[in-house]
Computed example of a mutant assay.
Amino acid sequence: MSTRPQLPAPDPDETGPYVHLGFATARPGREDEVEQLIVALAEPLRAEPGAIEFHVHRDRADRRQFVIYEMFRSKADLEVHLAQPTTQAFVQAIASLVEGPLRQQFLRMCSELPAAIAVAE
């Protein structure tokens, strides 16, 4: 399972943050382990330079489905995050707990970032 996907380049006119979604399906009976593993990332990830937001979501209808929401100041900051030992260890640890590879999606923010969330360079 690769932790270093090819990240799409920001659009030339893009000024907002770089957003990453990760999707995982826990193996039956491993749901709580997956949740604990992902939630354990919150504190170290939020302390990384360039990290703006990190949230873990679990589907209400299918408790095996997880969505990770990460917002970074830039593509470069996300690339640094993906190379971190914490991220590498997470990918290795979760591999046996989920079905298939983690699915990833990279988003362009179209709405304005709330003023309360600073995106300082």
Rank of each mutant, 00 (worst) to 15 (best):
F72E: 00
A76F: 05
G100M: 06
G16E: 12
V98Q: 11
E70S: 13
T87P: 04
E14R: 07
P44M: 06
A120E: 13
A76Y: 04
A24H: 02
I52P: 00
I52Y: 05
L41G: 03
C110K: 11
L37G: 03
Q104I: 06
E43T: 11
F106H: 15
D62C: 01
D13F: 03
H20C: 07
H57E: 06
A51Y: 08
A115P: 02
V91G: 07
G50Q: 05
F90H: 11
T86I: 14
V80D: 07
Y69I: 05
M1Y: 12
R27K: 15
I52Q: 09
V67I: 13
V19W: 03
P12Y: 02
A26D: 04
R46S: 07
P8Q: 06
A120P: 01
I52S: 02
T15Q: 14
F90N: 08
P28S: 03
S96Q: 13
K75Y: 00
M1E: 12
K75W: 01
A95V: 02
A9N: 12
E43Y: 01
M1L: 08
R58Q: 13
E35W: 10
P28F: 02
S111P: 00
P28M: 06
A61T: 09
T87E: 08
E99M: 04
E31K: 10
V56P: 00
F23W: 08
I94E: 01
V56N: 07
V56L: 05
E48M: 14
A93K: 15
A116N: 10
R60T: 12
E33I: 03
I38V: 15
T3E: 11
T3K: 03
I94R: 03
T15I: 11
E53T: 09
A95P: 06
D77M: 10
V39L: 06
Q84K: 12
T87K: 01
A42H: 13
A120H: 13
R58M: 10
D11E: 14
P49D: 09
